[in-house]
Write a protein that binds this DNA or RNA. Structure first.
Lengths: 135, 135
DNA sequence: ATAAACCACTTGTATTTTACAAGTGAATAG
DNA sequence: CTATTCACTTGTAAAATACAAGTGGTTTAT
């Protein structure tokens, strides 16, 4: 670790161009399989995806388990630590909504209530996520 | 741009291990000079710092101007777009407070009121920042 | 039963980014 | 006039990323 600054702690884990996109896919788009992450618009490559999934598992932000129905499929899920990244993703999304043009508005994902004061929105989406990712 | 996702917009600009640390230094530690950013604990190298400062200026997140008192010094300041990154930094900080050990608590920077619902905290720090960075 | 396709990766290599050390030129201090 | 400060730039080695191809089990189709 480079310092004891909390911002730095986060950045050392997900300070890159891909990690939070994987979290987003788990969080908002309900993706769970390796192949599903590959389909996302940004076009992550296979080795980078494998690397990030491993790091996220080590950091206990996601868990990995084999599907019992399809033995060759691996199911990735968010842990509580992962779900708690929601405010980070929301904050970035709202900032981008404000300053970028021609984006698919973040509002559609976070829902209107969250715009002004998104604490409540975060709580409700969190609850939904906690139920959703049991399998 | 890799996609029209708002999260991705943000990540393409500050999705790395250094950019938000520079914003933090401007925002919380009142740093304004190139040499001051170099002094931070994480140890950014000179070429990376120069590169990030340029990108941030292009993105209109910071402005650059020569000091009138010291002609060899350059003053960096946050624009409104930069100040509005506060919620992102706060969100990362609070997450880290929750999940990392032995960190210098983010609370000390964001102040107690911000913990539960940091919207108000964000507003007050924002106001201070807007006044502070006029020169 | 066998072949084809699927799935989650791994491997190899070229390209890009980062880290580290040193250097530059203008400005200021002694 | 000399030394130091300041904001960088440059060169190069090391690391990370991108792209293409391959691997080894698993499931599907015939």
């Amino acid at each position: 670790m480079r310092s004891d600054c909390p911002l730095n702690y986060g950045l050392e884990i997900f300070g890159d161009k891909w990690t939070l996109l994987i979290i987003r896919d788990l969080m908002f788009f309900g993706k769970r399989y390796y192949s599903e992450f590959l389909e996302s618009a940004e076009g992550i490559s296979t080795n980078i995806l494998a690397d990030r999934l491993n790091t996220l598992e080590q950091q206990k932000i996601i868990t990995k388990k084999k599907s019992k129905l399809h033995k060759q499929k691996v199911i990735y899920s968010l842990t509580q630590k992962g779900i708690d990244l929601l405010p980070v993703i929301v904050a970035i999304g709202l900032w981008s909504d404000e300053y970028a043009d021609n984006l698919n508005p973040h509002r559609d994902i976070v829902i209107g209530e969250a715009k002004r004061n998104y604490t409540q929105g975060i709580k409700s989406v969190k609850l939904r996520l906690q139920k959703m990712h049991l399998e």
